[in-house]
Amino acid sequence: MRLSPDQRSALTSLWLAGPATLAMVVFIFLPVAIVAVLSFTDYQFGASSFNWSGLDNYIKLFTSSIGQRAITNTLLYVAIVIPFSVGFGLFVAIGLHQMSTWAPRLSNVMKTVYFLPVAATLVAMSVAWQMVLHPSLGIVNQSLAALGAAPQNWLSDRGLVLYTLAMIGIWQSIGYNMVLFLAGLAAIPSDLYDAAEVDGAGSGWSRFWTVTWPMLGPTTLFVMVVTATNAFRVFETVATMTKGGPAFASDTLVYALYREGFVYFKAGYASAITMVFFVFLLVLTLLQFRVVEKKVHYR
C-alpha cells in the first residue's frame, strides 16, 4: 500500500509528537483530573471506599483559620519575594554587565558566586541558614549584639518567621534572575544606546528608562512568571527549618498539602489544596501572559 505524501508527513508528525503527548496525558492531565475528582470526596489514603462530600473540602480550606493562614501566608510570601528578587536580580545583572567591560574576570567570579545558591540544594542550604540564624550562636545575632541591637528569634518568632523565610527565598532566587537578566541585557542592540546618547538620553538614569527597561520587558515578564511560580511552591525551607511553625505562622499551601496528604493521609482535603494551588498558578500565568504580553512586545 502506498501512502500519499500528505499521509506520510502526517504519520511522521504523529510518530514524533505522539509519544510525548501520550506521556503528558498519562502523567500530567490524567492525575490532575483524578486529583480534581478526589477533591470533592472525603477519600483517605489506603481506604477502600469514599463518600462524595461536595464542596466541603474547599469550604474547610477557605473558612478554617489554619486553611486561611496557609493561603494568606503563601500570598504574602509571594508578594515579598517577587519584587525584591526581581529588583535585586536586575540590579545585580546591570552592575555585573557593566563590570564585564572593565573587569571581565572579576565579573565572571561574581556571577558564579551569585549563582551558587541556585545550584546548591536548598535543603542543605537550609541547614547552613539555621546555623547563621541560630538565636544565640548564629552570626546574625552575634553581629546585631556587637552593634548594640537586640538579637531576634528569626525562626521562632511568630511575627518574624515568614519574613525570614522570604528573605532566604529572595537570596536563593536572585542568582537565577540575574542570569536571565544578563542574557536580556546582552541582547539589547548597542545602536539603541548610541541613539539615546545622541538624543540626550545618555545619562545613567534616562538611559535606563529610555532603552534598558523597555528593552528588558519580555525578560522581566518571564522572570516574574518564573519567580512567582517558584515562590508559590515554597516548601523546602518551611519543611526543614520551621515545619510550618511556630503555631502555623509559616504554614504555606504546599506545606499544608504535604502535611494533610502525607502525614494525616487526608487525600480528599490535600487534593482540594492542590486544586487551589493549581488555580492560583493558572490565573497568575494567564494574567501575566494575556495582559502583559501585549505591552511587552510592542506590537
Binding site: D191, D194, A195, M215, Y298
Partner: peptide, 13 residues
C-alpha cells in the same frame, strides 16, 4: 549632532 543609524535604532516601545 544628529545621527541616523544603519539599523535605524528606533525605540520599539
Amino acid at each position: 549632532v544628529a545621527m541616523v543609524f544603519q539599523s535605524y535604532a528606533l525605540y520599539p516601545h
